[in-house]
Design a protein around this nucleic acid. Structure first.
Length: 254
DNA sequence: ATGGTGGTGCGACCA
């Protein structure tokens, strides 16, 4: 089964790209970020026609996440228990005995800014939320736009990005605290040396020059990491007309 | 060269 994550940067603009990608790849679970659409406008009918269930936690203009699944989810949750957040960045649900977390982690703007402090607070809250769920019977898969490049091999020019937003030590430490003894970065686990990005800035012709970072991640519970067969990033949609600035990342699990 | 492009929505913000 395919588990995938994609920051679409507006579901309204990207709906045909997403529908085509689903038809081609037939994911079991697809987490979308930056839908930028309120729930009542979400195109549930498009996914229904494809044979999928869809769950939206959206808002106008900014943020917004959704889970698209080929079987119904149980226990869908739209917020963390211990962190009140007006920004719609969180949705979870149980899929065939696995707790799927789809997350749009704050960008953080620049190191030291108010938005950076919000990002670190959000990551701490996520850590606490995950720690609570450790007692649960369900293994976890966390997918989404983490807005953190885990290591220098995930960055086109590590010297240029050193201590910058998406790469700072505090962000990486927060991510490691979340994964420690619990989760594997599936792409890196299965591709120890590969340099492959998931996001390229629209500005400065980032994609054409392959100036990118790997910030879209699928973190898999150590209890089921052995079921992961492969992990990859599909650049095909990034080459289309009017693409998202992110490519879909996915894992194949037995 | 210290910006650039793109989405939302129509000005200014976010990334």
């Amino acid at each position: 089964m395919i588990i995938a994550s994609w920051n679409v940067n507006s579901i309204r603009v990207r709906i045909n790209h997403v529908a085509d990608w689903i038809r081609t790849n037939k994911p079991s679970v697809l987490g979308l970020q930056e839908t930028k659409m309120k729930n009542e406008d979400f195109p549930h009918e498009v996914f229904k026609e494809l044979g999928y269930h869809s769950y939206s936690n959206g808002q106008p203009t900014y943020n917004g996440v959704a889970l698209i699944t080929d079987a119904p989810l149980d226990e869908v949750s739209y917020s963390m228990n211990n962190y009140a957040d007006d920004q719609k960045r969180f949705i979870t649900g149980i899929y065939k005995g696995i707790k799927m977390w789809n997350l749009y982690i704050p960008n953080g703007q620049s190191v030291g800014s108010d938005k950076y402090n919000y990002k670190l607070k959000w990551l701490k809250a996520l850590h606490d939320e995950l720690k609570q769920s450790d007692q649960s019977a369900y293994p976890n898969i966390l997918m989404g736009d983490f807005n953190i490049a885990p290591e220098d091999n995930d960055v086109h020019d590590p010297a240029l990005w050193k201590d910058k937003i998406l790469c700072s030590k505090a962000e990486r430490d927060a991510l490691h605290k979340i994964t420690h003894n619990r989760l594997y970065d599936s792409f890196r686990y299965l591709n120890p040396e590969r340099k492959h990005f998931s996001w390229w800035d629209y500005r400065a012709a980032g994609y054409r020059r392959n100036i990118g970072l790997r910030i879209d991640l699928i973190l898999v519970d150590q209890k089921i990491i052995g079921n992961c067969i492969s992990s990859d990033i599909d650049e095909a949609p990034r080459k289309l007309e009017r693409p998202s600035d992110h490519a879909p990342v996915y894992i194949n699990m037995s």
